[in-house]
Design a protein around this nucleic acid. Structure first.
Lengths: 241, 241
DNA sequence: AACACTTATGGTCAGGATGACCCATAGTCC
DNA sequence: GGACTATGGGTCATCCTGACCATAAGTGTT
């Protein structure tokens, strides 16, 4: 519903951008894709990748386009989800810029950052990110994205979005351990995820590792939700907030 | 991060609005505040209340201002939360209008709709809403707001936002029953919510009803999250999606 | 006063889910 | 073969849940 407020009271010259928090897991660590800003403001500072919404483009299309430009991934094998919109006046010194933040979870890419974009982009372990150095309000966005990702692992099957198919149950468990930051009992974890309907589809294949017993391999099932959920315990929740 | 895309490729003349999905519980039914549009497009059709973001205003401030204009409520005793942003081109025939949707849960107001706004606003039971008649893409927004509200009851303590303090456990249970659309076992519900830490604070008072045993009264506690969650069963979840 | 009626509150009990274990299995490496 | 390592399967006590039953504390009726 559009109100009858006089036009001059509206925010004028509003620009709308989409920023992306792209998480992946590399070297058993949760990493986020950061770019180095090539111009003012915040020149030289790390920032989340993003860009303006173009004419005729949905917000999702903008996000997918940016993601493709930065990582070379198409939208088929990844999880992309709107996080939140940030629009405080003053969050961008150039004027009123409202940004729709998206959260993307992508599997470990063989190509480091196969972007067509010329800007310097790199994966940074989340624990190594200097939040105070991030441009704009991206520290806030990244923190909220991290908490959303952590809680989504509890209730949904998105953890599998981090894995390249086919994957073993241990691969999946490592996703949880890396994102949550503590270890899970392998046996109980197996019981849980194999018991959930349509979470995992066994392929029948096995993967022989360098050491240890070969692991059965799975693909992602069709279930978007994990029920019952796989929850962090109450005490651990406390410590993470 | 702002890209180096030439300015003319940006969406031009973008307007940003905030739309509100305001839920309350009246007459044991979940109701949503709808306004009747006073001008084109969609003149005369029901729509969610909302308005343009003004200069110097945060998105939250816009939402609180609109909420106050429509209901007369101040922001202190209500739950206000960003839902999602909708920005498909063509969702508004006048041009590119991106709207940030908010979800508000308010207690039953004594004044019907004490808004300062002149537009016709009224509470409509959600089950009576003709979704196909709603202006813009408000049917989509309302549906997603409803699902968010339902799931938030599971994991958080927001249900108490529907109650005027002090309230009884049955008042709170009725919130769950009305929002979820099925009845809960009174005894099990009591065990659950009284067992949760800092959800309910007993006042020591009792309320003598017209019929039945007097009920102990409570106020909202400080806990934002409900742990362990109070979940809809798997079968009921299915039927609601 | 006794009783019916309604809602609030409290308790039981079986089944399911969970966390903490243990142990066998199936590979590699020495 | 034996050490090592990770997978996979199992047990068991405990907690949580859902389905019930029972009692409490009011009002209104007989």
């Amino acid at each position: 519903m559009i109100s009858e407020v006089p036009p001059r009271r509206h925010a004028t010259g509003v620009a709308v951008t989409v920023d992306l928090v792209i998480f992946t897991i590399k070297a058993d660590r949760l990493q986020v894709l950061l770019v180095e800003r090539g111009k003012e403001p915040f020149i030289g500072r790390p920032a989340l990748p993003g860009g303006y919404v173009r004419d005729g483009e949905t917000l999702n299309e903008t996000a997918l386009r940016e993601l493709s430009e930065e990582t070379g991934l198409d939208g088929r094998r990844l999880h992309l989800e709107q996080l939140k919109t940030y629009g405080d006046p003053g969050r961008d010194p150039r004027g009123r810029v409202i940004t729709v933040a998206y959260l993307a979870l992508v599997p470990n890419l063989s190509t480091p950052v196969a972007g067509t974009d010329a800007r310097a982009a790199s994966w940074v372990p989340v624990e190594s990110v200097d939040f105070d150095d991030l441009a704009f309000d991206h520290a806030v966005i990244l923190r909220e994205a991290l908490e959303l990702a952590r809680s989504h692992l509890e209730y949904t099957t998105v953890a599998a979005a981090f894995c390249t198919e086919p994957f073993s149950i241990s691969d999946l468990r490592r996703v949880y351990e890396v994102v949550w930051g503590f270890s899970l009992d392998p046996s109980n974890f197996r019981r849980k995820v194999t018991g959930a309907e349509n979470f995992l589809v066994p392929t029948g294949e096995r993967r022989v590792p360098e050491i240890g017993r070969p692991a059965a391999l799975y693909r992602r099932g069709t279930a978007p939700l994990l029920f019952p959920p796989l929850m962090r315990s109450a005490t651990i929740r406390q410590s993470q907030i």
